Computed example of a mutant assay.
Amino acid sequence: LWTRGQDMVDAQLRLGVDVMTGHWEYTFGADRVQEVVENDYAGRIDFVAQNVTDADWGDRIFRPYVIREVNGVQVAVIGQSFPYTPIANPRHLIPQWSFGIRDGEMQETVRKARHEGAEVVVLLSHNGMDVDIELARRVDGIDAILGGHTHDAVPAPLPVKNPSGGTCLVTNGGSNGKFLGVLDLDFRDGAIRGYQYRLLPVFSELIDPDREMAAYIREMRQQQVTFEGETFPMEERLGEELAVSEDLLYRRGNFNGTFDQLICDALMEQVDAEIAFSPGFRWGTTVLPGMPITFEHVMDHTALTYPAVTRNEMSGRRIHQILEDVADNLFNKDPFY
Rank of each mutant, 00 (worst) to 15 (best):
A136G: 03
L158Q: 07
G194P: 05
L1F: 08
Q224G: 01
V139Q: 00
D31A: 12
E240L: 06
E296C: 08
G173S: 06
A118M: 09
R311H: 11
V48E: 01
W2L: 10
F295A: 12
Q50L: 12
T150K: 01
P83M: 03
V298D: 09
E269T: 13
W2Q: 12
T167W: 01
D56F: 13
Y84C: 02
G43R: 02
E116I: 10
D18V: 06
D272F: 06
A308N: 13
L200G: 03
M291G: 07
G141H: 07
A30D: 14
I207S: 04
G316R: 10
V110K: 05
E212P: 00
I322G: 13
Q196G: 04
E105L: 11
G148D: 00
R282T: 07
D334R: 09
R311E: 09
F28R: 02
A11G: 07
R137G: 04
A11S: 09
P233M: 03
D132W: 09
I207G: 04
M291N: 14
F82N: 10
L13N: 01
L288G: 06
R111E: 15
D247F: 06
R63L: 14
R317L: 11
F295N: 12
M129C: 09
Y197D: 03
G284H: 02
M213K: 08
E219Q: 09
V73K: 06
T27N: 07
F28L: 14
